[in-house]
């Protein structure tokens, strides 16, 4: 999927009556038992409003937020109303079974391991391969989370190895705790910043392309044309 198609998915919801500007879908990935569900539960303020789509085995929660685009010059960025969908597995990774639907429609990935389980950290490499194969592009936006930071005495993954992995793949890394809430907001916000920046860039690019063709491009034109993207996804 191209960057512009990615942007259109969010912008397509930006109709006159929609109460939000962007619909953003994040997917939590990682071995079973690392705390994905608890993490998302913590992020959505402990609400039980999850919805389950049994045909594809996706469990998701939703949250409305106001996102302010980060700027480099310290000025206030533009604000956008974001409807965030947080996708979770329904446990099928226990059977080593995840269908491609799971990866394909997500715009950002919360890749999680358990700081107390070395195996879950080793498997991060496998998850990255899966991601690169099935996600909308080869370098999707990912945030790496080492969860269960509250279980300090049971830690079994050395910091150095985590840093190495994060640097090698260019992933922002957070130590998180779904139990105490440590860095849960920060990690999701970080991913949202990345995804929103990617969208801004692709929309800007589309504007430039439109201008080059000598046409005046309005916001609605842009959404229309992107909505009709030929992307097969």
């Amino acid at each position: 999927m191209s960057d512009s198609a990615l942007a259109s998915e969010g912008a397509a919801k930006n109709g006159g009556t929609a109460e939000y500007d962007y619909l953003i879908k994040f997917l939590a990935l990682g071995d079973s038992g690392v705390g994905k569900t608890s993490f998302l539960y913590q992020y959505t303020d402990g609400t039980f409003n999850n919805k389950f789509i049994s045909t594809v085995g996706i469990d998701f929660r939703e949250k409305r937020i106001i996102h302010r685009l980060p700027t480099t010059d310290g000025t206030m960025g533009r604000t956008q109303r974001v409807h965030l969908q947080l996708w979770d597995t329904a446990g099928q990774e226990r059977f080593r079974s995840l269908t491609t639907a799971f990866f394909r429609d997500a715009m950002g990935f919360i890749l999680m391991f358990d700081l107390t389980s070395e195996q879950s950290f080793l498997n991060i490499r496998n998850w990255l391969v899966q991601l690169q194969t099935h996600a909308y592009c080869e370098n999707p936006d990912i945030v790496l989370c080492g969860n269960k930071a509250d279980l300090d005495e049971q830690r079994s993954v050395p910091d150095e190895r985590i840093r190495e992995l994060a640097e090698k793949h260019g992933l922002p890394y957070f130590e998180t705790s779904a139990a105490t809430g440590l860095n849960v907001m920060k990690a999701v916000d970080c991913l949202l910043d990345q995804v929103m920046l990617r969208m801004e860039k692709s929309i800007d690019k589309a504007h430039l392309l439109g201008a080059r063709n000598g046409q005046k491009v309005t916001e609605s034109d842009l959404e229309d044309s992107e909505g009709k993207s030929s992307c097969a996804c």
Binding site: I53, S54, T55, V56, G57, S97, T100, A101
Partner: peptide
Amino acid sequence: RLSIHDTV
């Protein structure tokens, strides 16, 4: 085989 699919 689990009955989970690639599309909704």
